[in-house]
Write a protein that binds this DNA or RNA. Sequence first.
DNA 1: GGACTCCGTATACC
DNA 2: ACGGGTATACGGAGTCC
Length: 790
Amino acid sequence: MDPLLHGHDPETGIVAVQQAGDSRVKLYVRSGASVSAREAEFFPFFFLTDASFLKGFPERHWVGELGGNNFYRYICAFTGWHDMWEAIHFIIDNYNRQHETKIESYTDAGLLHIRADPVSQFLMQSGKTLFKGMIFDDLYRLQLDIETYSPKGFRFRNPNRQDDRVILAALSDNRGWRFDINGKGKSERDILEELANTIKEKDPDVVEGHGILNFDLPYILKRCEILGIDFAVGRDGTVPHSFDPRSATGDRAPDYPLFEIAGRHVVDTLHLVQSYDATKRTLDNYSLAYVAQYLGFAKPDRTHLTADRIPWCWHNEPDTLIKYAVDNVDETKRLSEYLSPSTFYLSQMVPSNYGSLARLGSAAKIESILLREYVRQKHSVPKPQAGSQSTGGYTAIFYTGVLGPILHVDVESLYPSIMISEKIRPTSDGLGVFEHVLTQLTSIRIDAKKKMVSSEDPSEKAKLDALQASYKILINSFYGYLGYSQGLFNDYAAADRVTRAGHKVLARLIEEISNTGGKVIEVDTDGVFFVPPNSVRTRSDEDDLVAILSSTLPNGIRITVDGRCKRMLSYKKKNYALLGYDNKISIKGSSLMSRSMEKFGRYFINKCIEGLLIGNVDDIHRVYESLHNSISQHRLPVNDFARAETLKDSTERYTKEVDSGKRNRTASYEVAIASNLHSKPGDKVFYYITGTGAGVKGFENCKSADDWDPNFPDENIPYYLKRLDEFAKKFEIFLSQEDFHAVFSVEGLFSFSPESIRVLTLPAGEMASEATGDEEEKFDIDPKIWLDEG
DNA sequence: GGACTCCGTATACC
DNA sequence: ACGGGTATACGGAGTCC
């Protein structure tokens, strides 16, 4: 246990910390099956630039001068949370008396720095963290799902309506317990009281649910309020209370109300799924049944029900509804087991509450760790540097076309390795915490991975994997932190040194690959796609090649095989498609295929890519022709050509900015306004283009997809034919001019013959100008058969 | 009116 | 595993001929 990384207090088993009054916190400590509570003192504090701002503040307080010469040279501590805020207002008033430009909030002039969350403050000053000495399964977790009934004629459930009610609840825990409260023949009061008593009796550390923050909890609490029930499930006997998260970034944060149950944590698996998909972008929707299916732990006999079937089911087959709810809690448990552990293990390091950690950015996690040590050593703290980073990752494309076989190698932890080996760290970090923590994390991650590989026990393996994954999240954020504008310890020059060193490593790697006779196709930041030399035919040849390449790179820099595939369709930087040895195709990049594209376009591009990769040009021609005909004859349903766009701003804001000339009109907002629904940011709009002529303005000729009438289709045929040709144009670079026109045309006098058509492979980018003329280079596309595969 | 550039917004990769 | 740099597409406005 490293004190800088895990905090300097070794106390184990803390499962929850909550503020208890103005100057105390309550700690809940688990020891085996029992949990005990105790109170502890804490002193609210903040960092201040100039102690004179607090001169004359009447309440009891301490001002300590800190070591070093950083911007925030004083730490101010108070006996209570209330006094601390009084002091902040005192400082603002003081400042406004002395300065012309007035400030309203403590964030305005950067006079002081504060973590406005009392639990973080306590953890920071005490050096304690949650869950020390525990593994994920030691945490006692309870899953919850309720079903509700809305009277006939109402599509949506609404707890405020007299006749809306909770009809049943299903519960489970991570010790194998399952329970349901069947509301048949029970009053809603009975159900809710039994639910509250069950939760109190089971006494979980965590309450989990899919959509629990948006639906289950608010619904339950509203019904309890109407019925006059005390839903006192807090560990101190209090009712859950909601609070608005202070969205630090402000503009685009999806503000949902959060709930706090005293002494416990509330985990919404829906939010876990959302953040999981934010980077992966592979999920079609976030419904529990779909995600469970996708991740492979849905039971074959899982009960499926749509919301509109629930009333019928409740009247005719209540047992099916109960089974449905039980399946829901089962899957919620599995989902949480899959997505929660990395946050759990991060909680053992970062001085933050379990729930808030999931919402915290990675920069804030690192900064909390740094600040904890600065508080302990009573050292002054810097303010963020102004400026910006001037370089980023290295990108290049050398060939377009269809090439293969492909090896994708990447430099393992490129930026962290560079930061460690070249000792790059923020200049303002006088205590050297940044470097220490990064080095420490890296070495314990390697340890965990080693142990994971050699472990025989699957549950031990899973624990170590979660552990190393949580280290990785932190490790990968250190570079980003250097260039983060709000980071107290940011250092743009250091960030630039890292990226420049990265360029050098990549340039070296590209050179070495070429030296061995490999053809480099595309490079992005830390990965290289290339065609290995002909002599490399088996996996062990590949491993040998990678070992040779690794040995030519600077110490501490290693490369690994990230993937291998039969062929690659190289289109543009960050845009390519791969044909795997399992014949699966994966497409990357928004320019080839974007979510905002019309459905028929996505289908068409998919077919084109498939045709080019497997060498079936005939198919491409046929798909083009059939789509061309379908569009011309109004045979596509509206879903195939409507566009889905997400509104980023309110329609009011849009109208205001259009009127003041700040922004152009766009189809999506015009449709939202015309359809007269109250649309809010984040809403999706489905629309299509009407009018005559391919060149119409979208914002003047758009209609909601709901208004499309299959009996009187009014979509703009020339416009959608133009769209089809625009999609086809993406493939121009892969074919000669004649071939291109032959493939992407409707049958003329002569029928299409695919025999003579060849797919071009051309030097791209800077190489294109170096190459003599435009002639094609010859590549063997000869998927190798791996000896160890089938 | 077409060709061109410039700009803001959106999406996606690492 | 949300932060920022890099890359690309697209619609619309302004400009020039």
